[in-house]
Amino acid sequence: MSFNESETTNCQCLILIIKIMKKIFLIPFVIASLFIMSCEEEDHHDECHECHIAYMATGSKTQGEIGEFCGDDLADVEANGYTLLEDLVVGDVTIPAGFYPGVDIHCEDHADHDHDH
């Protein structure tokens, strides 16, 4: 049972129980109903995020920016990786062209000490 399925099933179960309960206790039912909205689920399918290749060179990691990915493209690059068509130069490090698997692709946000995210 996935997270979404379990959430949905339990919400349905809760609604059923509350329907029964309201026959006995109307007021608590009304209040409890307000919390049904907690069944709403977070959805990241429309989100866009900047991604980078985490490239190991001479014992340290270098981040090579590969642009912004949205929706299905984001899911695809995180799952299946990214093919870098040309060498990418970051400071003194050159990230060679080639295929980088999903484990090397990072799209999570990071703290920005200047906070302009």
Binding site: S6, H44, L74, A75, A79, H106, C107, E108
Partner: peptide, 12 residues
């Protein structure tokens, strides 16, 4: 029942 998901990536 406890469901625990840990996401490092956005979608997986």
């Amino acid at each position: 029942i406890n469901n625990l998901q840990e996401f490092e990536k956005w979608t997986i």
